[in-house]
Design a protein around this nucleic acid. Structure first.
Lengths: 333, 333
DNA sequence: TTGAAAGCGCTAACAC
DNA sequence: GTGTTAGCGCTTTCAA
């Protein structure tokens, strides 16, 4: 199953392979010769080998993305943003899903490096940081998403969310809807989760409300949702704030299955907007995921040497799941 | 920004590059020499160039996926299935999103071919068929998803759904819930849509119910949902069947915004299961998307010469959006 | 404007 | 076991 090579085309057109290369990549070539070459390309159905090309360039035209969990609405939108600017820049995107399987991350990043990707976008845990540092040091622009890195070396950029502000937004909305004791669901001690929880704490504190360690529970995957919610409900909160966007479905289902009604018994707010949120009346704090993806890809394409960091502001999308907001924060449910 | 090459490692270890290659890829090497080489690899942080490797193999280890629209729950699950078997086979997946932008498809397939992907999985329109045929003819295993191809050449496989059965399932459920006049929403004259509509027609016919051309309207993107639903509602159907899974959100929203209540005024059933369907009580006919993705990737990995076709059976996931089902099909709402 | 030749980083024969 | 020598398919000097 031998493929047509540039040499075969050259032979068919009666020119040298250098000439074929020139007509394909735009060098100075006689129009008549060029026409002959193009005819041969068509006739032989020649498809240039991008792999070989990349050997010369030193790298491919592909942008690598190592992602946590494609199912999360946030990552989906992020991907679309990345894909858009990749496409606009003649790049393809190569993609690997870690499914939060630690250890897989490092291997996948390594694979991307072996593929000589034009740039790397990672949404993974800090565990893979040294591999990323190494890649950046090797000259590949890297972008860490959803997390800032301290003291980044050249070519290591980040695109993040102001998580404190996100938590604060949640708290303010909850308070303005008259909620006074909120339970928090987090997916673990990652920076984003910690930041949002801290924001929540501060926002609540400003209203004279305290958030104690007991008010915060950790979900362990979707399967842990029932347990987490049951634990939280024992403290009889009047609202639940979920700072782990990817667990929204499971937490919401658990809430309902425990027999509470939203927003009458309990208010509910979560992270990341999603298509069905509006049908369900679920209030959320949204990240500009699409924009963040675009920005990340732009960092790759522009490839600045100096490390860049951009922090986006979250926005509140108030619907009905926390009750009605009032200016003075009085209860209105 | 020169990268470490195999030659540099060889020099550092005082051996030839052939020996380095052997320790990396498992050839017969003296353990002492091997140790020295590995030390040099670590010290120099050598990352082999997968691109160059692929030149020899004639192709890369990457599986290409050209997808319609990542946002659709079906494609998301499909991707996860593909990714799983790719990962298990040491392959990465390279991905391009056409967003149904005709013409982009052909270009993206061409790009995949230039990347010498190990195999191609396409979910695209028939418009790109000749490019796919050509790739298959060139020796690259290709899998068309969600559509069967007639008279496939060697290495052109397909993974599809029994669309007629899907439509029939919808019809049967609707009928058993006592619905007698159903309106259908489709996204256009693609084989899958046509098949499901035909299945619906047959299923309804068996219950003595007719489906006329006026009962079928086409949505033009999410923005067309309001119009499509308004048109359909003028005929006062007692149920709406949406055979375009990707439009579920928009159609559902349009239904509500026109003031109908589900299932009291109108029954609603759609294609493809999704995480929130259960919270919303929406009945669906589901495709085994995850399995289909796995199967598609397996065809690529196994690379049989003979064209293979596998047609999956859809399943009904009955919830509450059509009312309660009864055995005799009497109304029960 | 074109061709010959060198070489990108690696693997695969073939000797030793 | 290990080194030498050819390439893989392409681009890129350098002459002509």
């Amino acid at each position: 199953m031998k493929r047509t090579t540039i040499g075969a085309v050259a032979a068919a057109a009666g020119v040298s392979s250098a000439t074929v290369s020139r007509v394909l990549n735009g060098g100075p070539v006689n129009e008549a010769t060029a026409a002959r070459v193009r005819e041969a390309v068509d006739r032989l159905q020649y498809t240039p080998n991008a792999l070989t090309k990349s050997i010369f360039a030193g790298r491919s035209q592909t942008i690598g993305v190592v992602i946590d969990d494609l199912r999360s609405p946030f990552y989906l939108d992020l991907m679309r943003g990345i894909d858009e600017v990749a496409d606009a820049n003649g790049s393809l995107v190569m993609f690997a899903n870690t499914f939060r399987h630690d250890g897989r991350e490092a291997m996948q990043i390594q694979s991307m490096d072996e593929q000589r990707v034009r740039g790397l976008i990672v949404t993974s845990a800090a565990s893979a940081d040294d591999r990323t540092y190494r890649m950046a040091a090797g000259g590949t622009p890297c972008v860490v998403v959803a997390r800032t890195v301290q003291d980044p070396p050249p070519r290591l950029h980040s695109v993040a969310l102001d998580n404190i502000a996100a938590g604060r937004l949640m708290a303010e909305h909850l308070v303005s809807c008259g909620r006074r004791s909120v339970g928090v669901i987090t997916s673990g001690p990652r920076p984003s989760q910690l930041g949002r929880t801290e924001g929540l704490r501060r926002g609540l504190a400003e209203a004279g409300l305290a958030l104690t360690a007991d008010d915060i529970v950790t979900v362990d995957g979707d399967d842990g949702a029932e347990d987490a919610v049951a634990t939280l409900l024992q403290r009889r909160p009047d609202a639940v704030a979920c700072v782990a966007g990817r667990r929204t479905v499971a937490i919401h289902a658990a809430l309902l299955s425990q027999g509470v009604t939203i927003p009458d018994d309990i208010g509910f707010i979560t992270m990341d907007d999603f298509a069905w949120a509006s049908a369900l009346g679920i209030s959320v704090v949204a990240q500009p995921a699409h924009l963040m993806g675009q920005r990340a890809a732009e960092f790759v394409v522009e490839n600045p040497a100096q490390p860049r960091t951009v922090v986006f502001e979250p926005t509140l999308v108030a619907r009905t799941s926390c009750g009605e907001a009032t200016d003075d924060g009085a209860a209105s449910r």
